[in-house]
Design a protein around this nucleic acid. Structure first.
Length: 569
RNA sequence: GGGCAUGUAGCUCAGUGGAUUAGAGUGUUUGGCUACGGACCAAAAAGUCGGGGGUUCGAAUCCCUCCAUGCUCACCA
């Protein structure tokens, strides 16, 4: 089904047009019609404020306009009443029997409830977690990973065919450093007295010591005169396996692993460079065009590099594509990669990056424009930093040093469900504080339990029903009262939530909704008993049907978040 | 100094121009368990929506400005 607000907005628009055609309202542009629940439930289920916005252009009091709109509104089966309220709201009441029928819909097809077709026939690609495989996944990086997978799930649920891709940066200096670091560990493990070089470049993670030991077990000292490349290959392979293992633990599975190396192997990187040159966007120089003599003198010792004249496309300064030593910077293959993605024919490209990559993403975007491609296809979602807190104090780590704040460690301490929810519940724009103590806790402050407990309670009712031999055949839904209807109204919001989450690439709205849904459930559960003393068999049946639907609803929402739906806790 | 983002209850955060009274969770205070599992429920207190201007019927939301915080401005990736 389509979101109710969109269906109602269409009806309001039709009513305005009918009134205009009948000469009861003057011709005027109709603005976007926003449908929201009124502040107070007794004012109706949904309301439109469009009469207020039309008042000026139509030179009529908003209340009059609202009355005319209401008069021309058609009422499909889901609407029972259209009312007008000052200063000019058009309010809609849903038909209660239609709402009750939600129970049947949820029982029979709850697993697809809220699915939309806005991406039908379209292919989307979500690229996330891409990085040098120089270390395990940290908590900081896991935010982008969870968000990327969350976005992919939302897009799937709203009709897109989705590919999840990992761009594997296995070329470049950092990987060289990783190989060199392993080589040194290997030689040290062999007993050689080697000084650990420049701390900035050396990866200190203890896992490299383990890898070195494993290498000695496998190959003995046969690699002692080998250079860094063999070690890089080995470290990369091990690291890749580790990262994938962690992904599996948290429920993330990529469909495509794209190796940066292939861009070099196929020569695409240099084709892109030639294309940029042919278009006149590249120049060869020691320093940027227009630099002062002072800067020129400082850099006089360098050989010329090749520069992308990105200032043509609004950049603050030009960027190096090929260093004076002849190697490409990260920028050039990154542009080539994005061109590659565009050429694969996706309708939507989503790229999850840390906020620290903002400038880089802008440069790539300008490169795409310079090559004559449409950058609008590419949606970059920047996640703000995660600051990890433990016992009220900042908790920091670094991929290059030891094993601090890894996602693995956090999964060990908490659960995949808790991490999923915590990292998904906030807007990507917010600076997320991850409190390890809260995530670890099994108490009230942890919303994961509150949501899952709703599902557990429903499961408990179903178990009780089985014991009592009660089933839902022939349940009379008209027996469901105001409390149940309030909850079902909340369920009806899911399609709207899905649309917002899909269009804005914001799965956190679903996480919030899950909390609201649980918040609507628990108070009702306390008052609406299925099997307490004195409840007659017909009412037991209808309430059992209702809780069966409720269970399906929580299962659906938890599935959307890729969280488990426990039967017991 | 430039760019991006953030600033909403003690804390963590929703809120994509609409309803005399700005929401949720948590925390605080008070009350409720012979239970379809209390990991729950009920109630209360708690806010100059960072400050100041502006736009209009109407602003937490849009514009300007100032303040504060994070990230970023490499021939690193």
């Amino acid at each position: 089904m389509k979101p109710l607000t969109h269906q109602i907005a269409a009806l309001v628009r039709q009513a305005i047009q009918k009134a205009q055609n009948a000469g009861e309202l003057p011709q005027a542009d109709i603005p976007a019609i926003d449908i929201k629940p009124p502040r107070k439930p007794e004012q109706g289920d949904y309301g439109a404020s469009v009469a207020l916005a039309l008042s000026k252009g139509m030179s009529k009091p908003p209340l009059d306009i609202a009355n005319i709109i209401a008069k021309h509104m058609t009422k499909p089966d889901f609407i029972s009443a259209v009312e007008v309220a000052p200063p000019g709201f058009v309010n809609i009441r849903l038909d209660e029997n239609w709402i009750r029928d939600m129970v049947n819909i949820l029982i029979t097809s709850g697993d697809t409830f809220g699915a939309l077709d806005i991406g039908a026939g379209k292919r989307a690609q979500v690229e996330f977690l891409s990085a040098n495989p120089t270390g395990p996944i940290t908590i900081g990086r896991s935010r982008g990973a969870i968000l990327g997978d969350g976005i992919a799930r939302v897009l799937e649920a709203t009709g897109y065919t989705v590919e999840r891709e990992y761009y594997f940066n296995n070329a470049g200096v950092q990987m060289h450093n990783l190989g060199e670091s392993l080589r040194i560990r290997y030689l040290k493990e062999l007993g050689q007295d080697i000084e650990i070089p420049d701390m900035d470049k050396f990866y200190q993670g203890e896992y490299l010591i383990d890898y070195a030991k494993d290498l000695i077990t496998e190959k003995g000292d046969s690699l002692k005169d080998t250079d860094w490349e063999v070690f890089k290959e080995y470290a990369e392979k091990r690291m890749f396996g580790w990262i994938q293992e962690t992904c599996t633990r948290i429920g993330i599975k990529h469909d495509v692993f794209f190796n940066e190396n292939t861009l070099y192997d196929t020569g695409v990187v240099w084709e892109i460079l030639d294309d940029l040159k042919a278009r006149g966007h590249v120049y060869t120089s020691v320093v940027r065009e227009g630099e002062t003599d002072e800067v020129k003198a400082e850099n006089a010792h360098l050989k010329p590099a090749q520069w992308f004249r990105s200032t043509t496309f609004g950049d603050e300064e030009d960027r190096v594509l090929v260093k004076s030593n002849g190697e490409a910077t990260y920028t050039l293959p990154d542009i080539a990669y994005h061109i590659n993605k565009i050429n694969r024919g996706f309708d939507l490209l989503v790229n999850i990056l840390g906020a620290d990559h903002f400038t880089q993403a802008q440069v790539v975007r300008r490169g795409v424009v310079a090559l004559g491609y449409d950058p609008e296809l590419i949606h970059v979602v920047h996640v703000q930093m995660v600051s990890v807190v433990r016992d009220g104090k900042p908790f920091k780590g670094s991929t290059r040093r030891g094993l601090f704040d890894t996602l693995d460690e956090l999964i060990d301490l908490t659960s995949a469900d808790a991490i999923r929810y915590f990292l998904l519940q906030r807007s990507p724009d917010s600076h997320l504080k991850f409190d390890i103590n809260v995530a670890v806790s099994q108490g009230n402050e942890n919303p994961v339990y509150y949501i899952q407990y709703a599902h557990v309670r429903c499961a408990g009712i179903l178990r009780e029903a089985a014991v009592r031999g009660v089933n839902i055949d022939g349940a009379d839904l008209s027996l469901l009262g105001a409390e149940e209807l309030t909850f079902l109204r909340k369920c009806l919001e899911l399609p709207d939530i899905m649309q917002i989450a899909s269009e804005n690439l914001s799965p956190h709205t679903i996480a919030f909704y899950a909390m609201e849904l649980a918040n609507a459930f628990h108070p009702m559960y306390d008052r609406v008993r299925a099997f307490a003393d004195g409840i007659d068999p017909d009412l037991q049946k209808s309430r059992l049907a209702f809780y069966s639907a409720t269970k399906a609803m929580f299962k659906r929402v938890l599935d959307l978040l890729d969280m488990t739906s426990p039967e017991r806790m």
